[in-house]
């Protein structure tokens, strides 16, 4: 209850009011996104997943090349002929090899491409956890905390007297 009380202060009411007004204004000026037919969007997403063999890296959707235009027509014909997405992709793979697909297959060696990113995420999460555990376990005395330790302070003033610290700024920021 007390938490709720803290939250609902005057500043909150004010902030919510202002932001809601902006939001309402935005909503009024907005409109639903334009939708196109299921058929068109299927064609587009297929085109975007197939590479134009003569213009490396570009999809047939993106490329201005004649071959790409020809392949777009084939995609459309096959969709009209009732082929499924994977059958159409297979059709191009049979002719040009797996290189024609813009994403590696989820089988064979292509699977490795897909596995590495989530494994990386896992490793990243683990390293944050480990850093936290290790640094928490470290005793307070081992780190000099916010202020310099006694010996460091003595060293600091020694350096200062030697004129070194004065020129290059103090060795620590928060003395």
């Amino acid at each position: 209850m007390s938490i709720v009380k803290v939250a609902v202060t005057r500043s909150y009411v004010l902030a919510i009011l202002v932001i809601s007004l902006v939001l309402i204004q935005l909503l009024v000026s907005c409109k639903a996104p334009t939708e196109i037919s299921e058929l068109d969007s299927r064609t587009n997403s297929l085109n975007k997943s197939i590479m134009c063999p003569v213009c490396p890296g570009e999809s047939i959707d993106q490329s201005q090349n004649e071959l790409a235009a020809h392949m777009r027509r084939i995609v459309r014909e096959q969709i009209d002929g009732g082929e499924t997405d994977s059958e159409i992709r297979e059709y191009f793979v049979d002719r040009y090899g797996p290189v024609v697909l813009l994403e590696p297959p989820t089988s064979g060696i292509g699977l490795i491409a897909w596995i590495v990113p989530p494994v990386g995420l896992l490793i990243a999460i683990c390293s944050v956890a480990i850093a936290l555990i290790v640094m928490k376990r470290r005793k307070r005395e081992e780190v000099a905390d916010d202020t310099l330790s006694y010996s460091d302070r003595v060293r600091y003033f020694k350096l200062l007297e030697e004129g070194e610290g004065a020129e290059d700024g103090p060795p620590g920021r928060e003395i």
Partner: peptide, 23 residues
């Protein structure tokens, strides 16, 4: 990883693959 994967797959599997926008 995605950028160099085609080299990787070619070296180990002799299949050329493309890693593009969808990936």
């Amino acid at each position: 990883w995605g950028t160099v994967f085609p080299i990787f797959s070619e070296a180990f599997d002799e299949t050329t693959m493309t890693v593009g926008q969808p990936f």
